[in-house]
Every structure is written in structure tokens, then in C-alpha cells.
């Protein structure tokens, strides 16, 4: 369900009292409602679905997990990450 595409916020506007923004996706631009991501700053990436920004992309998280995967490629061995607290044993 739910095609949602990451894009970069270019500018902020107010339309009909709603926080709106122009989002760049690889050179094409779309308008999105920013009411659900009020803290977003120009230059940040967000996920856009049906004309609404749903979440600011967590850049640190993304960089970290990519780094982890890159290590996996380089080392040739997978490094099992620590279990998250919500995963419980049978």
C-alpha cells in the first residue's frame, strides 16, 4: 500500500492556514502538506505520501545502518546486531 517517496524540502509556505512545502524528488518538485512534520527545516528529507509529509528521515540512523551494511560487504561476514528490547525469547 502506500507509495511514499523521500524528497528534500526546498521551501516553506502557508496556504489556507496550512503549513505547506515544496519537495524536490530528483529534480521534479511536488507540493506537500507539512502539518505533521512541523519541525522540518529546509534541506531536510521527508517521506511524502498522497501530498503529505509523514516523517522526517532520520539521517543519522540511515547513515549508521548503511555503514553497518557496508561493513558487512567488506568483512564478508555478517555482524549480528544487538537484540532490541522488544524481541523476546519464546
Amino acid at each position: 500500500m502506500c507509495l511514499a517517496i523521500p524528497g528534500k524540502l526546498l521551501e516553506l509556505t502557508i496556504e489556507n492556514g496550512l503549513k505547506m512545502g515544496t519537495i524536490d524528488v530528483n529534480g521534479s518538485k511536488t507540493r506537500a502538506c507539512l502539518e505533521y512534520v512541523p519541525d522540518i527545516k529546509v534541506g531536510q528529507y521527508t517521506i511524502v505520501h498522497a501530498g503529505f509529509a509523514l516523517k522526517i528521515i532520520d539521517e543519522e540512523e540511515a547513515a549508521e545502518s548503511l555503514k553497518l551494511w557496508q561493513e558487512l560487504i567488506e568483512s564478508g561476514a555478517f555482524q549480528p546486531d544487538e537484540e532490541l528490547p522488544s524481541a523476546e525469547s519464546l
Binding site: 507509495l3 517517496i5 524528497g7 524536490d24 524528488v25 530528483n26 529534480g27 521534479s28 511536488t30 511524502v48
Partner: peptide, 13 residues
Amino acid sequence: VKPDVRGACELLG
């Protein structure tokens, strides 16, 4: 595929 065409295609599915 041109970059902006690709972007628009991704957005519109």
C-alpha cells in the same frame, strides 16, 4: 531515464 523523469515516475508510481 532522465533524473527528473525518474523522480516524477517514482512519485506517481
